[in-house]
């Protein structure tokens, strides 16, 4: 039993080493011990067809507040994955306005 525990511990720690190293090659910051090392404010605007989507619906679909701050590519990944897993007829057009560390705002849209 101890061997099993030790094996799981080794897996957990090695997976984290992988997560830390991975951040050198990707933009998101999942499992890298650094998701909030950049003050990225965002505002999500979504459209179902031509109709704007309410903030509560945005939060319900993405689990993110329509306005908050979070790791930049974490937000993009959440939106991308949530939309890809939604039914095609229920997908939204999403516009996210980011502002990184008090810099100039920039926009990201989905579909990209």
């Amino acid at each position: 039993m101890d061997r099993v525990c030790e094996g799981l511990v080794a897996l957990l720690l090695l997976a984290q080493v992988g997560g830390v190293v991975r951040q050198l090659f990707v933009e998101d910051r999942f499992f890298a011990w650094s998701p909030h090392d950049s003050r990225n404010e965002y505002r999500i605007t979504a459209f179902a067809g031509e109709q704007p989507v309410a903030a509560a619906a945005i939060q319900a679909r993405y689990g993110l507040l329509a306005m908050d701050w979070h790791a930049l590519d974490n937000v993009k990944t959440v939106i991308r994955v949530a939309e890809e897993r939604a039914e095609p007829r229920e997908r939204w057009r999403v516009v996210v306005t980011f502002r990184r560390n008090l810099g100039a705002p920039f926009v990201w849209t989905y579909p990209e």
Binding site: Q16, Q23, R29, A32, W33, S34
Partner: peptide, 12 residues
């Protein structure tokens, strides 16, 4: 590991 990961994130 937490601290080394945090430092690496800031370094880049």
């Amino acid at each position: 590991l937490v601290y080394f990961g945090a430092v690496l994130s800031k370094l880049i």
